[in-house]
């Protein structure tokens, strides 16, 4: 991030706070554990090569990057970089529509 980036952000702990407020019958600790385990479920699904499909939100999958020749920036020496997988997100229709139709902040 550059110094000029003032975009407000929602962090994992903000998300936990908001959920704890909206799910007030649950205690904070449980919401915190739930959010952490949701993120872990998503990470480990991708780490084992599974897709994630969340209706209204989007899908995550892995994209393959073939092997390529790279260069050591210090020595200029050529090095063979192996193929690898990278996570990819495709927003779903509802998220695309809502993101494209920005609203003022709620609080």
């Amino acid at each position: 991030m550059t110094d000029r980036d003032f975009t407000p952000s929602l962090t994992r702990s903000d998300l936990i706070d908001n959920l704890a407020r909206s799910q007030s019958h649950l205690n904070y600790k449980d919401v915190e554990i739930a959010v952490k385990s949701l993120i872990e479920m998503m990470s480990s699904a991708l780490a084992q090569g599974d897709r994630i499909e969340i209706r209204g939100f989007g899908s995550f999958s892995l994209h393959y990057r073939p092997p390529r020749m790279g260069r050591n920036p210090k020595t200029g020496e050529k090095v063979q970089l192996p193929g690898k997988y990278v996570p990819h997100f495709k927003p779903g229709k509802e998220l695309r529509d809502r993101a494209n139709n920005q609203k003022p902040p709620r609080r």
Binding site: T7, P8, S9, L10, T11, R12, L15, N18, L19, S22, Q23, A34, V35, L38, I39, E40, M42, S43, I54, G56, F57, E94, L95, R98, A99, N101, Q102, K103, P104, P105, R106
Partner: peptide, 21 residues
């Protein structure tokens, strides 16, 4: 609600930073 919170943040111009993800 977890996904709804992320959608609300994005539609109100926030970025969402989920550490570890």
């Amino acid at each position: 609600q977890f996904f709804e919170e992320v959608k609300i943040a994005l539609e109100t111009g926030h970025q969402v930073k989920l550490s570890g993800f």
